[in-house]
């Protein structure tokens, strides 16, 4: 019997947090069968790509779905009045 997917997912999540290329906390990692899913949001496409690389290196046997969104935060938005 192979390693339980929960441990593989935990190892990928640790790698995303600890690898110097990414140091990204809070990315959700899910494994279903031989499929690996990354979800969350980051500011730059380059960071999304690096997260995919690190995840793939950590679990190369799994098929990676990099579903991380790019956060577009260009407009300042509406003010809030605290009274």
């Amino acid at each position: 019997m192979g390693e339980a997917p929960q441990y593989v997912a935990a190892r990928v999540q640790q790698a995303l947090a600890e690898d110097a290329r990414t140091n990204e906390l809070g990315i959700r990692v899910d494994i279903r069968g031989d499929q690996l899913f990354l979800r969350g949001q980051v500011s730059e496409p380059g960071q999304r790509d690096r997260l995919g690389e690190v995840a793939h290196e950590t679990a190369p046997a799994l098929h990676l779905h990099n579903e991380i969104r790019i956060l577009d935060a260009s407009a300042p938005g509406e003010d809030e009045h605290l009274d």
């Binding site: 935060a73 938005g77 809030e80």
Partner: peptide, 15 residues
Amino acid sequence: ALPVIGRAYAVYCLA
């Protein structure tokens, strides 16, 4: 946090 406010910055006005 930027992903929470979803914009470059939030503005809060204190009377």
